[in-house]
Amino acid sequence: MTDEAKKEEQQAPKAEAAAPVLHVAPGPHAFSTSLTTRRMMFDVLLALVPVFAASLWQFRLYTVIQLVICMVSALLAETLFTAMRKKPILIRDGSALVTGAILAFSLPAKAPWYVGAVGSFVAIGIGKVIFGGLGQNIFNPAMLGRAFVMIAFPAFLGATAYVVPDAAIDGLSRATPLTTLKQLGQNTGLLPLFLGTTNGSLGETSALACLLGGAYLCLRRTASWEIPAGIVSAVAAIAGLMQWLAPVAGWTVLHELFSGALLFGAFYIATDPVTSPLTPRGKFVFGLGVGALVMLIRKLSGYPEGVMFAVLIMNAVVPLINQWTIPTPVGGVVLEKKS
């Protein structure tokens, strides 16, 4: 044995002996390295690439500008708020970047810079940090930020805010598909909805891009497939029922699924692990709830789209869902004390 080995041999056990709990070192001593919190956040950013590409194609520079505004503001906000609370700065977990990006993709192209900035500050400050940081918040931070700016600046986020008559970009001069449907009773073709050559929030227009990125997230298990599955099932079921009861010519279940923020919300927003339930069954129930609420808002309220409110409302129900879906352990519940 080398001298070094001897030294190690004496040192290594000593280092262990200094572990917090006397002589009981925390096991397991093996861990999966395929996934870390940071990697999960990076996965989301990676999965947003197709959405970014589709958005860039449709809205050009607007996409880049909104993204930069929101992501930079989110980072600034996180630094500022965590410093104020004298908490260690956790920027490295990447969650602020994800929040910023999701917020940017849910804004209209022409929203002024301060909409994104205020939205990001609210998302991080109220949405996350005051709850105690990543993992503690109840509401999806990006949606909370968006809800705030929607109320604070209705003119920039209402249905009309999406339309820019003199825009050089063709898509921008028309109202969003759901607005045209609601107000004018006009339909949009399935292909434009699928590819994303329609107007809408920056990240929501292309169903194809959302499906691509969403598939990646689900395959990586960074997003739980049960949530989008629940949302899509609920929307398809309700839309199918409505089509059967009160058909609208040229507007099918697929139109309902591909329009608005439905797929973007299903894959990128509702799947936020922190604000969704823990068990697979709970996740599916959560998805069903979001889907049902989206349809309710789309059809019965004054708003053309309801993903944001649906997610926020269901976020509030998550603790209840968790309660209802406590799984039965293998072997049943403990009836008597262990002897």
Binding site: M1, T2, E4, A5, K6, E8, E9, A12, P13, A15, E16, A17, A19, H23, V24, A25, G27, P28, H29, A30
Partner: peptide, 25 residues
């Protein structure tokens, strides 16, 4: 078994999943 290698860091009684670290050889 030839002793510990220089980079040995933790001795476990059992396997890595359920084993306990050995504080004193």
């Amino acid at each position: 078994c030839g002793g510990l290698t220089p980079d040995a860091a933790r001795v476990i009684a059992g396997g890595p999943m359920m084993g306990f670290t050995v504080a004193d050889l």
